[in-house]
Amino acid sequence: MSVRVLFFGQIAEQHGRREIEVVVGGELTLAALLASLNIDSEGLFLLAVNQQQVDDLSIEIGDGDEVAIMPPFSGG
């Protein structure tokens, strides 16, 4: 199972990458995906799954999903 993970803004700079492909054995929660990436789920960032913002870390991530890890928005 493959999940595309996107990083934006200062988070992309901190991780030195904008996008990674994560291959996992089966379905996993968003919290487990963050943990596998060594990302502190208490961090100050926003999350989106398939371009929909989410707050619930217990949701399941499936094959082909796109997960975005985003700093607080600052447009306008």
């Binding site: 934006f8 200062q10 985003m70 700093p71 928005f73 600052s74 306008g76």
Partner: peptide, 27 residues
């Protein structure tokens, strides 16, 4: 609309200053 745009639209700004570049995190 402009208040909500700042809260809900995934756009980020980075300012160039004499001390280097700096991401903006406030609204």
């Amino acid at each position: 609309i402009i208040d909500e745009l700042k809260l809900s639209v995934p756009i980020w700004k980075k300012e160039t200053t004499p001390n280097g570049d700096s991401w903006v995190t406030q609204h």
